[in-house]
Computed example of a mutant assay.
Amino acid sequence: MNPYERKRRWKYLLLFFAIVIAVSSLWYTDFLVQNIAKSERTRAELWAQSLKRMFETDNDEMMNFLFTIRDSLPVPAIVTSEKDSIITYQGLDTAKTYFEIESNKKYDPKYFLKELREMKNQHNPIPVEFYGKKNLIYYKDSDLLNQLKVFPYIQLSLIAVFLMLAYFAFNSARKSEQNQVWVGLAKETAHQLGTPISSLMAWVELLKERFKADDSLILEMENDVRRLEVVADRFSKIGSKPILSSHSVYDVVKDFVDYFRVRVSDKITFEVNGDEQLEALINVPLFDWVIENILKNAVNAIDGKGIISINIQENIVKEQIIIDITDTGKGIPRSKFDTVFQPGFTTRKRGWGLGLSLTKRMIENYHGGQVFVKESELGKGTTFRIILKSSINYVPTI
């Protein structure tokens, strides 16, 4: 299992536990709400019975006792007749139950109707008889119960926001640290390659003097040494903003393909098509690296004979140059279209899984373009698409 797959499984596992915790919290809160709701229903029924007894008793001592019971049960309630005429109420907002007209306090009908409508929506009424007439007692949930209903959602939301902020903070710090290590390693690699490459260049010149200067083996050796020099230059540019200039995309791609094709199996055919006049803003050493990474993946995907074709075209409306690199290899599952660009993802036993990750970084961060899997079919091949900024309106700075 590659590191990316292992990392993804850990994410799913953590997500599963987070869902379990959230569901458990909501279930337990709902359990508490149900119990408190039952308790409030019992309290409302007891209040209704005490109210009924108050209308039936003439005993002053019993009346005082019933008043004590009624006042000890803080239930927001409204007592109505069967026709919804309000008889009395308890526990409502005293600041809203009345309004003043010419210094006389009157019931505010709008407030009572709103409260009554809310009570009807929450609970079934408690029937009770006063003087032989059937009346209805409506009540609503207490403020404590209403707060308890929303508390877990507020709590989980705050925890989620905190975890997201912590994740982004730690992730940003980790990426910054990785970038510093990557830049330091790249520049040190370029520095270490400098001395042996200079020596190799000198040895090639010496061979050209002693033997035939146009010998094909010596010329290919010289090309490889110059290639090493380009590689060292690539690493030295990591971490600094590369200089982009206008180049013919066809010429840059064609030059690299000519170099690359003699270093892979002759069973693989390369085709480069497109308008040779199309120019884009690129840094040639870094862009060569991009093409090299995609072509190497294409070669590894082809089992035996195959074709790798590169088509270059222009999107005039968006002022973009589009490069499609198509191979006849084994293809990529649709679920892996984004995964292939993740660091550490590889299908090779000895691969590091960094090639396409670097490709994405160089195209998006350094060239301001895009790279993605345009299409792929298992057993038939894959097309990678690179989008670059056209230099049609480019004005070089002096």
Rank of each mutant, 00 (worst) to 15 (best):
V161R: 07
I387P: 08
K105A: 07
F17Q: 08
G304R: 06
Q342G: 00
N273E: 15
V284D: 11
G91R: 10
N171R: 12
I386F: 05
Y107L: 11
L244Y: 07
N179S: 10
M201S: 12
Y111V: 11
M54Y: 04
R174P: 01
G344P: 12
N104R: 14
K110W: 03
E220I: 01
F162S: 11
S248K: 00
G91S: 01
F287P: 04
E314L: 03
E102F: 00
P74L: 04
V128D: 05
D303Y: 07
N273Y: 05
W47M: 12
S72W: 05
A202E: 02
D30I: 03
M201T: 06
W27Y: 10
K254S: 10
T328K: 00
L281H: 14
N2C: 03
H247Q: 12
I310Y: 03
T359F: 02
L144Q: 13
F55A: 13
P109Y: 12
I321A: 09
P196V: 05
L185D: 12
I159T: 06
N124V: 11
D266F: 07
F260T: 08
V20M: 11
M221F: 11
V290R: 06
T94N: 13
P285I: 09
G304W: 08
S248M: 08
T328H: 04
L228G: 10
L13W: 08
K105V: 02
D84T: 05
W182V: 06
T195M: 09
V161S: 12
E45T: 06
N2T: 11
H247R: 15
T397S: 11
A22M: 07
R263L: 07
E377V: 10
K212E: 13
F260Y: 15
T359H: 10
T42A: 05
R261P: 00
R53A: 12
K330V: 01
T195A: 13
I78E: 10
N135F: 14
N64R: 14
S198C: 01
A37H: 03
K140D: 14
D251F: 03
I282H: 12
N124A: 14
G355Q: 12
N365H: 09
G274V: 11
E276D: 13
K83S: 13
G91Q: 07
I197V: 13
L206N: 09
S85K: 15
P76R: 14
P109R: 12
K38M: 01
G132E: 14
D327Q: 03
I316C: 05
L66N: 00
K149S: 10
D251R: 04
S240I: 02
Y98T: 14
Q277K: 15
K212V: 01
V183H: 07
G184H: 08
N64K: 06
S198L: 12
L193C: 04
P196L: 10
V79M: 14
R361K: 07
D275T: 09
Y107K: 08
E364K: 11
S198M: 04
E188C: 00
I392M: 10
P109M: 05
G351D: 08
V204I: 15
T269L: 05
N393F: 13
A169Y: 15
G351Y: 08
